[in-house]
Design a protein around this nucleic acid. Structure first.
Lengths: 153, 153
DNA sequence: GCGGTTTAGTTGAACGCTCAATCGCTTCGG
DNA sequence: CCGAAGCGATTGAGCGTTCAACTAAACCGC
């Protein structure tokens, strides 16, 4: 027999709704600003960032998907667009004939360099400037706990 | 002349990336589970919830947009789908001929009642079960601070 | 090596969201 | 009153994401 639902108590509900509102508003702001200033959604910015940090600025599609926390399908579609924009290029993988390697182009590096300062400023303004150092620390611990919990199960 | 960018220090970067990963993973999980179990995305669930809490289970489109933190356009599209599913109905507003009032139907109430227990269980499992009571409290304060900061400016 | 099962990546359709344009109604200054 | 500005809501195009196939190559056991 089904167990009785344990509903959220008022405090939990307040927490949950505040979290929802805050994270959604934050993401929407950042996404809109990045789209306006740099002509790319936040997800694409993240792809470029991860590529820029990789050795030779290149990563296997799978590893890139992993790093950006996106599905293979999503990355495939994104890569198609990023390639059309000239920001990345896809090459065949020498060690696995199924594989593809995404490579950040010079144009991609330039796009990232142009987008980064504004985006970092926005993150600072919308997130870090609003919180005390203690709260930032708390948020880090909470987020890391959640990441472990969400990806570990 | 443009001011030098103040980049994120390693701690800030760790915080930001953990937050991004956690909130994205959380939302994707909840969205997927709700879609699978109840055939609706999380945004639509929220619309039904807000309507169910309103007097007479009815709200002006604008107020509903406000309550769910969505644009008028988004709500309009969503309402069209929810109406097609038979979960809400739109009526003309008696006091303002431009206005529309969204009304939760019996079928919508039933859909919500069917979806709620599973969804609440998922929120509990993915969020509250992972955190200590202290962390939940911290998260509430942080989120409320962010909401104030994001909507106040 | 051979057949079956994973794994890497892509594709297309359906869907939800954004943005800009639009339309009718209300409000307000003069 | 009347015209202009503002407001409430919708629309359609374009885009990004999801989900479910699907292709091709690699791996595994025997």
């Amino acid at each position: 027999m089904a167990v009785m639902t344990r509903w959220l108590d008022p405090d939990e509900q307040r927490t949950w709704r505040a979290f929802l509102t805050a994270s959604r508003a934050l993401m929407e702001n950042l996404d809109r600003e990045l789209q306006r200033e740099a002509g790319m959604p936040h997800a694409y910015y993240e792809i470029l960032v991860r590529l820029s940090e990789a050795p030779q600025r290149r990563l296997r599609m799978s590893d890139l998907a992993e790093a950006t926390g996106s599905s293979r399908s999503r990355l495939s579609h994104a890569a198609a667009r990023l390639e059309a924009s000239g920001w990345i290029r896809r090459e065949e993988c020498p060690t696995d004939r199924r594989g593809q390697v995404a490579v950040l182009t010079d144009s991609g590096i330039a796009a990232l360099a142009a987008a980064a300062p504004g985006h970092v400023a926005d993150v600072r303004r919308h997130l870090f400037d609003a919180l005390s150092p203690t709260q930032v620390d708390q948020l880090r611990r909470i987020s890391e706990t959640l990441v472990d919990h969400l990806t570990g199960s």
